[in-house]
């Protein structure tokens, strides 16, 4: 039991890491990863939604009639997303301003609905929670990693929390601005996918 729990948790961290392995949830991955801070904020918000919607859906899985399950899942997910939105507005308003429209869009993020449909709807509460947490952390890591690559190359800084960078390449560095522009997100994601496959092959 404990062993399979660990397995459910860790598969989200590497073997099925959402944006790179499952290639799900690309909209926020591409849109908000200008800085590490944005990536982490988005990742944490998604993790929260994933864990709680997974728990609730697996609790209700025997009650929800299969014909309207998608509607029920969406209602549950949308509830948690709206709670996250209120919370971010109330306590981390600056981050809310940066992520803006992408917070409500977590509702239609494929990862959340995908995990609900593929895992939480068929498993008990505790494995579902582990699955949601693992997937969420994997998603956060991926966003943070892509954000780090883009921010480091494109702006020469690393901003983890609170708006001021924790690391700055010296003044001589002239940022490769392309990476923080929209096409840089696609190329950055492509190169990271390529790297993941390269490592995975061995």
């Amino acid at each position: 039991m404990a062993q399979s729990l660990v397995k459910e948790f860790t598969k989200g961290l590497w073997a099925e890491i959402p944006p790179f392995r499952l290639v799900l949830g690309l909209c926020p991955t591409l849109a908000v990863t200008k800085t590490v801070e944005n990536g982490i904020g988005m990742g944490v918000a998604t993790t929260f939604v994933l864990v709680f919607s997974n728990i609730l859906i697996s609790m209700l899985r025997n009650i929800i009639p299969s014909k309207v399950r998608i509607a029920c899942y969406i209602v549950i997910i949308a509830t948690f997303v709206t709670i996250v939105e209120f919370m971010m507005q109330a306590y981390t308003y600056e981050l809310f301003l940066k992520l803006g429209i992408f917070i409500p869009l977590i509702v239609v993020n494929c990862i959340v609905l995908g995990r609900a449909e593929a895992f939480a709807g068929k498993n008990t509460v505790i494995p579902s929670a582990a699955d949601g947490l693992g997937m969420g952390i994997g998603f956060t890591m991926s966003l943070a990693a892509l954000g780090a690559v883009r921010e480091l190359i494109g702006a020469g800084t690393l901003t983890v929390w609170g708006g001021s960078p924790i690391f700055e390449i010296g003044h001589g560095y002239i940022p490769f601005q392309f990476m923080v522009e929209a096409p840089g997100a696609f190329i950055g994601l492509g190169l990271m996918l390529c790297l993941m496959n390269l490592i995975g092959q061995k």
């Binding site: 929800i64 014909k67 309207v68 029920c72």
Partner: peptide
């Protein structure tokens, strides 16, 4: 179906 969706 009706009951579950409504309650939810």
């Amino acid at each position: 179906m009706i009951v579950v969706l409504t309650v939810l």
